[in-house]
Computed example of a mutant assay.
Amino acid sequence: MEKLLTIKDVQEHLQLGRNRVYQLIKIDSFPKIKIGNTYRIPKREYLEWIQNNIGKTVFL
């Protein structure tokens, strides 16, 4: 089974604040799963998303 990341995991990895990560999650292309009131981010898809956006500006 694939590992799911938390908001805090993404915060630490990208060195962003909590509000910025929630803004990132609102982007349609950003991989996420909503379970109740919480979000989980599939690690493999997240890393692919990062790789596909290297050199691009992500507007929040």
Rank of each mutant, 00 (worst) to 15 (best):
I33C: 03
K3P: 03
L16K: 14
G36P: 10
T6G: 13
E2P: 14
N19Q: 08
K3L: 11
N53C: 03
I35S: 12
K43W: 00
N53R: 09
L24K: 11
D28I: 02
H13Q: 08
I41N: 03
I50P: 05
Q23N: 14
K26I: 04
I41W: 02
I54Q: 12
L47H: 04
V10R: 11
V21L: 12
T57D: 09
I50S: 01
K3D: 12
H13C: 01
E12P: 04
E45W: 00
K26T: 13
I41H: 09
T6V: 05
G17E: 13
R18N: 07
Q15L: 13
G55F: 12
T57Y: 09
D9M: 12
L5R: 11
L47E: 11
L24T: 07
N19V: 08
K43S: 07
P42I: 08
V21N: 10
L24A: 05
K32H: 14
K56R: 15
G17S: 12
K3E: 15
K32D: 04
K56S: 12
M1Y: 09
N52K: 10
I35A: 12
I25A: 15
N53F: 02
E2D: 11
F30I: 01
W49R: 01
E45G: 00
Q23P: 01
E45S: 11
T38A: 10
T57A: 12
D9V: 10
I7F: 05
V58L: 10
H13G: 00
K43V: 02
N19R: 05
E48Y: 03
K56M: 02
N53A: 03
N19D: 08
I54L: 14
Y46R: 04
G55L: 04
D28S: 13
Q11E: 15
N52L: 09
V21K: 12
I25L: 15
L5V: 11
P31S: 06
Y39W: 15
V58A: 01
I33G: 01
F59P: 00
K34V: 05
Y22A: 10
Q11I: 03
F30G: 05
P42Y: 06
I27F: 00
E45H: 04
P42W: 06
E12C: 07
I54D: 00
R40Q: 14
K32R: 15
N52P: 00
V21D: 06
T6M: 09
I54P: 00
V10G: 13
Q15R: 15
L16G: 06
I27R: 14
I7P: 11
P42S: 07
Q51N: 10
I50T: 02
Y39Q: 07
